[in-house]
């Protein structure tokens, strides 16, 4: 397994994340409805708004996953925040970064992952909006555009209406 690298700007990125004052807050309908919509639209078992903290990823909204957080070093989202584009892993078992990841070899048995970085107005990616499946698959260009739209809606909610 390849643990996600720590971005060079992680200190500033974390400052942006912590400034949102959203970590460890209760579930909110305005976020829950976005992940529920994604789960239905993409017919996936899991959809998440994941915030990548210093040592963990914490889920502001989750549908289909019991855990409220996982270690950062096993997170897919820790990889996805490195690029402004959607990170898509069509089959984690065929990807050397993730093939022996405990999230792949054990519950929730991730095989497919698509995560759009939550890039805040200051330019820092504080986490991802992601969909996960237990079978290999891929998203076409329209589905990727829909995922980006849902990500944009999540960013709007996180930033209080100020778009990136």
């Amino acid at each position: 397994m390849l643990a996600a690298a720590i971005p060079d700007n992680d200190r500033e990125r974390l400052r942006t994340l912590h400034g949102l004052l959203v970590l460890d807050t209760p579930a909110e309908e305005r976020f829950d409805r976005i992940v529920q919509f994604a789960k239905d639209e993409f017919e996936v078992p899991i959809a998440l708004i994941s915030l990548v903290d210093e040592k963990r990823q914490w889920f502001k909204a989750r549908d289909g996953l019991q855990a409220c957080e996982t270690d950062r070093d096993v997170s897919f989202c820790g990889h996805a925040i490195h690029s402004p584009k959607i990170m898509m892993v069509e089959d984690a078992l065929r990807d050397p970064r993730f093939a022996d990841n405990p999230m792949v070899t054990g519950a929730p048995f991730v095989r497919f992952y698509a995560g759009a970085p939550l890039i805040m107005p200051g330019g820092f990616a504080v986490g991802t909006f992601c969909v996960i499946d237990t079978r290999p698959r891929r998203l076409d260009s329209l589905e990727l555009a829909i995922l980006e739209t849902l990500r944009d809606l999540a960013v709007l909610e996180l930033s209080g209406g100020e778009s990136a």
Partner: peptide
């Protein structure tokens, strides 16, 4: 439905 309506409109704009 807000989610359906907004997602359609914003995606149309994006693509």
């Amino acid at each position: 439905n807000f989610m359906l309506r907004r997602t359609i409109a914003l995606t149309a704009r994006n693509i």
